[in-house]
């Protein structure tokens, strides 16, 4: 029984790591632009589908992965330039509908380009399954966790130890005053979309060998990433990391112990509970609305 639970936890860690990446994208864009980008999951889909399609046509897997991340980043840039920036005078609700529209449009694009059949991506490295205290993980899980480690370390270093990263934090803290010192809010908004798309795309690429890739995978990943981000407070990158892992583990435990139906449902349950009981999330700042 314990061994079985432990196996669920391990499986939860792997999906949780992906949720954390998607959640990081939500947080980045939310922090810099105040916007919840519901198209976030589609960046993962585009990363996963591009890499899988390229690898299927014979490209070495790392090359395919790199190009896929690039394609996802360009998609993020285009989303901002074509859909968000022209509508920046719009109100919050309108912008939410715009990102929901983007989500649908990107999924449609995925369907159009790659069709409905799942594509597969070879694991980055072969080898035997990894055993952790009696539980097993596929070798690709190491790549997933390594990606999380690198992405979150890079984000931490950028925001804490670079001048540009500090300027982004200043822009988040007080946009109008930051602008009087020449800090370019719109440029940062653009790059937040690019970074969120790159990170989401990377998440899709590293998870594709485990889950395989489909044109509609962005929907579930996006929702899970959103729940993880809310769980973490929506304004905290460490919160996104913790939220991702918590959600992943809870999902797999619920799915394993109760029934697979719960695996999907439990995320929404968590979302409702967090919004009602602790709207600032696990690691978010206390409510700052006036």
């Amino acid at each position: 029984m314990i061994a079985q639970l432990w196996q669920y936890v391990l499986a939860g860690v792997v999906v949780g790591a992906i949720y954390a990446l998607i959640a990081a994208g939500f947080v980045l864009i939310y922090q810099v632009t105040g916007l919840i980008n519901f198209a976030q999951g589609e960046f993962a889909m585009i990363g996963a589908m591009t890499a899988s399609a390229l690898a299927t046509s014979g490209m070495p897997v790392f090359e395919a992965a790199a190009i896929a991340v690039l394609v996802a980043s360009v998609t993020g840039a285009l989303c901002y330039l074509l859909a968000i920036r022209p509508a920046r005078a719009a109100t919050g609700v309108t912008l939410i509908f715009i990102t929901l529209g983007l989500d649908v449009a990107l999924r449609g694009l995925g369907l159009f380009v790659w069709g409905t059949n799942p594509l597969s991506l070879p694991a980055f490295t072969g080898g035997a399954a990894i055993t952790v205290f009696g539980g097993v993980l596929p070798p690709q899980a190491m790549w997933v966790l390594l990606t999380d480690l690198l992405v979150f370390a890079a984000l931490y270093l950028f925001f804490r130890h670079t001048y540009a990263g500090t300027a982004v934090r200043a822009a988040v803290a007080n946009p109008p005053i930051a602008s009087t010192f020449g800090i370019p809010l719109r440029t940062f908004a653009f790059w937040s979309f690019v970074a969120a798309a790159a990170i989401g795309g990377l998440g899709g690429v590293v998870v594709a060998p485990i889950t395989s890739a489909t044109y509609d995978m962005g929907l579930t990943l996006g929702l899970a990433g959103f729940v993880a981000a809310v769980l973490g407070g929506l304004d905290s990158l460490p919160g996104a990391l913790v939220g991702g892992f918590v959600l992943g583990i809870v999902e797999k435990l619920a799915g394993g112990v109760l029934s697979t139906g719960w695996e999907q449902g439990v995320g929404f349950l968590i979302l409702v509970l967090v919004l009602v009981l602790r709207p600032q999330g696990l690691l978010g700042r206390a409510v700052r609305r006036a």
Binding site: Y163, T166, A167, R169, A170, A173, N174, P176, I177, A178, F181, G182, I183
Partner: peptide, 19 residues
Amino acid sequence: RGIFAPLTVRENLLMGAYA
């Protein structure tokens, strides 16, 4: 004042020189 509250004093000052 409109300082960047979550930043350190040194970071606040450095941001003044952004341009």
